[in-house]
Nucleic acid binder design. Structure first.
Lengths: 166, 166
DNA sequence: TTTCTTTATGTTATAATGTAGCATTTATTT
DNA sequence: AAATAAATGCTACATTATAACATAAAGAAA
């Protein structure tokens, strides 16, 4: 399957937003089927909402959106769906923002590396093996066994930087 | 000034805990004086409490301890002191734990790199220029201007790993 | 010194984020 | 069809963090 849009790295201003979402949903659906995971309507809907933002979404933002078509939704509704989506690699939690973003490379490597623009709040996913390798190497040197490495880089994306400084 | 104890990297089981604390306080005091910052009794006490744990401390844990000798302390009391301490590099916030640890290298580089043991909850500070450089390089390649890079590695420290797997 | 100004702290209330626990429903297996 | 397991509904609550305004303390200017 070939996808026309970049699900990785930093999202470009003019990119096709809806296409990202529909591709992500399709990938999740397929992957769940092949793994025997239950991609329920609720989980699907939450994933859709997360992607619709194409930027970090707080759990309560998601809850608000979810309530548009599901009035009885409560915090656990969202948190449980997110738990499933995060556990299975369809969504990442950005710890420094207490927010969630769709994973641009579900199923592949999951290094958990993010570029967070402090201006437009967009998040780019890096998934860089060299970064992962250096972290692994240095940790190992200290006898530390790496389980889940996280890199969250706050800064300024190219678009915002250009807009600000020419 | 030479310090006998390792304020950096992963704390060893037998290390002199109190010495870490007193050294960290001394460093903070000196640095504040030289920079014209106000190292008030409250801020000093909060820093002391953070170091006393020698592991990540939640804001409300700190508040509890603070109340032992300051009954009227409230959340803003602690959060404001922490804000000062973080801003000036004496304390780091571990985003993935919503907790705070004393900075082992106040005043030097502040790469914000942490090894977090999921077993004993100890946190080691890395401060590795190679890791920082790779992140910087890869971000730059995407036109991203790095402001504050954070690396939080969840895993198992040598002590816990040895204890578990021989 | 005395006043002015800034910075820090006190205090109350509330916002934002996240979970526990148990009932009910829906799916899967036997 | 019955039994089991998984997911969701739902209430209540726990944890983390901040807003807003009053007071006090420190530093700068007169």
């Amino acid at each position: 399957m070939a996808f026309s849009n970049q699900l990785n790295t930093f999202p470009q201003p003019g990119h096709d937003h809806d296409l990202c979402t529909s591709e992500a949903l399709k990938i999740a659906e397929e992957r769940c089927r092949s793994l025997g995971l239950r991609f329920t309507p609720l989980r699907r809907r939450v994933l859709e909402i997360v992607w619709a933002q194409h930027g970090p979404a707080g759990a309560y933002d998601i809850l608000g959106k979810l309530r548009d078509d599901k009035q009885n939704a409560a915090p656990p509704t969202v948190y449980r769906a997110l738990e499933f989506l995060v556990k299975n690699g369809f969504v990442h939690k950005i710890e420094s923002l207490n927010a969630f973003v769709g994973c641009g490379s579900s199923g592949k490597n999951h290094s958990g590396q993010f570029l967070i623009c402090g201006k437009c709040n967009q998040v780019g996913e890096l998934d860089d093996t060299e970064i992962a390798a250096v972290i692994e190497k240095k940790a190992k040197r200290l006898g530390f066994k790496v389980a889940r490495p996280t890199v969250e880089v706050l800064g300024l994306c190219e678009t915002c930087d250009t807009a600000a400084n020419g």
